[in-house]
Design a protein around this nucleic acid. Sequence first.
DNA 1: GTCGGCCTACTCGGATAGTACGTGTCCGAGTGAAACGGG
DNA 2: CCCGTTTCACTCGGACACGTACTATCCGAGTAGGCCGAC
Lengths: 162, 162
Amino acid sequence: MNEGVEWAVHSCLNLAWLGEDRAVPAAKLAAFYELPAAYMNKQLQALARAGIVTSTSGPRGGFRLARPPEKITLMDVVAAIEGSEEAFRCTEIRHRGGSGSGSAVSGRGDTPCAIHTSMRKAELAWRRELASQSIADIAATVDEHSPAAAERVRRWFGDTRT
Amino acid sequence: MNEGVEWAVHSCLNLAWLGEDRAVPAAKLAAFYELPAAYMNKQLQALARAGIVTSTSGPRGGFRLARPPEKITLMDVVAAIEGSEEAFRCTEIRHRGGSGSGSAVSGRGDTPCAIHTSMRKAELAWRRELASQSIADIAATVDEHSPAAAERVRRWFGDTRT
DNA sequence: GTCGGCCTACTCGGATAGTACGTGTCCGAGTGAAACGGG
DNA sequence: CCCGTTTCACTCGGACACGTACTATCCGAGTAGGCCGAC
C-alpha cells in the first residue's frame, strides 16, 4: 500500500482539529512531520481531486476539509490515494490456452470466476470496515487516549511561522 | 496485488482436482493457461517455501499439494506469494518533527497509533475472510456451477504431451 | 532371466536482465492580500 | 480619510528525474527413471 495514505490520514486528522474555516498550506502540514513538502502536496492534490479537501491559492491559502469529519471515511481517503480499483485483478486466465474453456468455471460465457468472487468477498469486508470508520471517529479515539493532542496541534499550527 | 496470486490459486485448484498422488511439472501447469513457464515456476517455488505444495525433481517430478485442499486457505496462498506483512505500514510519523510528540496519539511512549489500529482492524477483516475460504470450498463452488470442469482438467493433464 | 551400474533426459532452484509504478523534486500559472498613491 | 490600482509574495498544479519492486528469462545442480551389459 502507498505510503502517502498514512500522510493523508494524519493530515485529515490535523485539518479536522484545526476546523473547516482555517486553510493550511501543504508546506506547513508537511513540516509538522518533517516530510517532503512537494510530495505531501501531491497527496493533498489527490484528496482535492476526490473532493475530500478543497484548495485555495494565493496568500493565506491552502487546504481545508470539504465536509465535516463525520462524513469522511477511511475508505474515502484510501480510495483517493490508492485508487478505487480492487487490489486483486482477475485477468481471466481460465479462458486462455489449451485449457479449452478453462478450469475455475466452465466458461459457457458468463459464469463468474469462483476465485474472483472469493477474493472480492474478502476485499468487500475490508472496504466495509474502512467505510465504517470516519475521521471523526479516529479523532474521538485519540482525544480519549490523549486529550492534549488536539490542543497541541492547534497551538503548533497557530504559532510556528515556518 | 501481485498477479502471481491468481496463477497460484488456479494452479492449486488444478492440483486439487488431479489428486495428491500425481506430480505436475510447472511447465505443464503454465501451458494450461499459456503462461510463461519459468515465471510460473517461480510462483510455485514460493508455494513450496510456504509448505503449501511439495516439489520433486527428475523425470515424472513436479509439484503436488502438501496437504488436503480443505486445509489450504486463500490466506495461505496469498501470504505465500505476497508476504505476510500487513499492507498498511505505520511508519510512526507522529513521532517525527516539530510536532513535538505527535498528533494521532500523545506519544508518552507506548500509546498505540489510532490510525494504525483502524487500518489493522480492516485488514484483519480481510484476512479473516480469506482464511475462511479453502481451496476445497472454491472447488466445490466450481463443481456446482459447472460440473464438467474437474473432468476436463483431469483429461487435459492426462492426455496432452506438451 | 535377473541384477547392478551407467547414462540421459527431465525437473527444480536460484541468479540474472527488463519494465512499470511509487517516490521525490522542480518550476510555472494563478490568486488574493497588502502596499501605495491619488482623490 | 477612503478608494482604486498596482505590485508582489505566496500557493497550488502539473511536468520532470530517480529508485525500488514486480515481471520475465536463462542456465546450472540434482535426481529418478530407463537402458545396457554382465552374470
